Simulated assay, not measured.
Amino acid sequence: MLTKVFPIQLKDGKQAEAEALVEEFAPKGPGAEDGTLSFRVYRDPARADYLLFVEHFADQAAYDAHTGSAAYRELIAGRFAGMVVEFVELDHELLVAL
């Protein structure tokens, strides 16, 4: 399993717009992909204009298919990217799960 974590700082005042776009993307992208095991996006109520993406994929090929999809290119690499100040892509390996 491949785990990706993305802390994302948004441009000022973009929280609501970014959240709406992520809600639009979820069923069209990750929700329709066999290799996407989970797609979760968190907001921090104490921090404006910030989202945390936590995503699980079956393997690297599933992640590549995810980022190569038409929905990803249009909504995330396209519209969402214009709302981002900074993001970091972090790979994680599962240690414990309950």
Rank of each mutant, 00 (worst) to 15 (best):
I8M: 01
T3I: 15
L37H: 05
D34I: 05
G31Y: 08
K4C: 10
E86T: 08
T36G: 00
R47G: 05
L2K: 15
S69Y: 00
V84N: 03
D59T: 01
L94R: 15
V5S: 13
L95V: 05
Y50D: 00
V84C: 10
A26C: 12
L51G: 08
S69E: 00
V5E: 07
Y63K: 08
P30D: 02
R40W: 05
V5C: 03
M83E: 13
A58P: 11
R43E: 05
P7Q: 06
A61L: 09
R79M: 05
V22A: 02
A77W: 09
A46W: 06
V22S: 01
Q60T: 14
G82Y: 05
I76T: 00
G35T: 04
A81N: 00
G29M: 12
V96I: 12
Q9F: 01
M1I: 02
D44H: 07
L98M: 07
K14M: 10
F6M: 12
V96R: 12
E55S: 07
K11W: 02
Q60I: 11
A70N: 03
T67I: 14
A77T: 07
A16V: 04
T36R: 13
F80C: 04
G13S: 01
V5L: 14
R79A: 04
L51T: 03
D44G: 11
P30C: 09
T3R: 15
L2I: 13
G82I: 02
Y42A: 12
V41P: 06
A61W: 06
F57R: 02
E93R: 10
G35P: 02
Y63R: 15
T36Y: 04
L52N: 04
L37V: 10
T3N: 15
M83D: 07
D44N: 11
